[in-house]
Design a protein around this nucleic acid. Sequence first.
DNA 1: CACTCTATCTATCATTTGATAGGCTAGCGC
DNA 2: GCGCTAGCCTATCAAATGATAGATAGAGTG
Lengths: 214, 214
Amino acid sequence: MPEAQALPDTRERILIEASRLLSINGYHGTTTRDIAAAVGISQPSLFFHFTNKLAIVQELYEHDIVPAVAGLENLVVGPGDPAAKLYAMIVGEFGRIADSPYDMRAHISFEALNHPDLAGFRDLVNQFDDLTRLLIRSGQESGQFVHGNAWLAQQMVSGFLVRANLFASSDQVERQINPREGAALVLRSLLIDPETIEQVEERAEELLPRYRSP
Amino acid sequence: MPEAQALPDTRERILIEASRLLSINGYHGTTTRDIAAAVGISQPSLFFHFTNKLAIVQELYEHDIVPAVAGLENLVVGPGDPAAKLYAMIVGEFGRIADSPYDMRAHISFEALNHPDLAGFRDLVNQFDDLTRLLIRSGQESGQFVHGNAWLAQQMVSGFLVRANLFASSDQVERQINPREGAALVLRSLLIDPETIEQVEERAEELLPRYRSP
DNA sequence: CACTCTATCTATCATTTGATAGGCTAGCGC
DNA sequence: GCGCTAGCCTATCAAATGATAGATAGAGTG
């Protein structure tokens, strides 16, 4: 049972290197030998820390999608208007992925998510989308957002989040993400009156802590 | 040289089934046996029609990214304002992917694009992004678009296109893409005055043929 | 010192996977 | 009818890959 007490350093390094390689080459494109080599241990040593290759991915998803859904759920059920909540979610997501010790840039695009053993995480990803869509719909009904296909709007939000994180780079100034600018960009397309964006921003700032501490 | 004369039906079916499987499981997650089984031929028969597995992907990319870049380039160098051009590009892209005989939903997310032999296509993908960014920048400079990080805005456009196509479904009414609604959604976030969207739409309609016939 | 547990190694295995070799058959030109 | 080719098959291979077995070294404990 490797799941016990104090985590040794190697286990952590495996997760870090694995996440990096998985983001680049995907699940099937990343071999256990690749991961082991990146960590600097022999390939069989991986199986001392994780029961199998899939367990590494499972743990990465655990760190990624679980807090995301928890945070968004917390935001949705709490006080505030839909626009401020959506703004807070986008800022929170950019921050969460940037602060993660793991490279979760391609978290959604993992083909691994088709694996039966990852069905639970696939459901969580869908739940995140459902909650985002719920936020958009309630904003439409309250007259804050323009009407239209909520699914399409949600794909814009989700697609933007995934894509921006995927191609973000700390080496190039232009590709460093300003979470608030990203959120404002998306909100502009949904708000009936884009002039109100500044008030949305103000209200969202108060909601931000709700996304981080579920 | 399979590249010659009249294409037999099998070759076409290989491309269709391969694109479908590749969209779901990615390059490394799709085996030549999977493809052959889907087509209904033996695995070695694939290599009568294609020199190797990568050649199938190469041909799919050829059908996908080459016309996309050609169309966008044609649009960029031609007449019209940036907003109308961007609108036309989004409508054109949704249409192009919907009309393709192949399932190119995940065209960008292929981990295969890291393969050295696909470097040319990787460059084309980058060129498509560069052209999109150019369109956004010129819209900003001409005072049509709000100022801000053009890279971030481009990621929103590209992310939306990829994501919406990826999860589109002809079985669910809500998930059927209305190209013009998608384009309007994105344009709203960029236009300084969203009220002008209708005029943008009108001007874009004239540009549309330019995207399709390069 | 003897025992135990952790973390690693080398050697190896069974499968999977991309690809090749070579044979069979139906259709076409002459 | 003969020869040729396209298109497909079965059998098979070499390499890659996930995983196991078993040995070893070192630290902690009594």
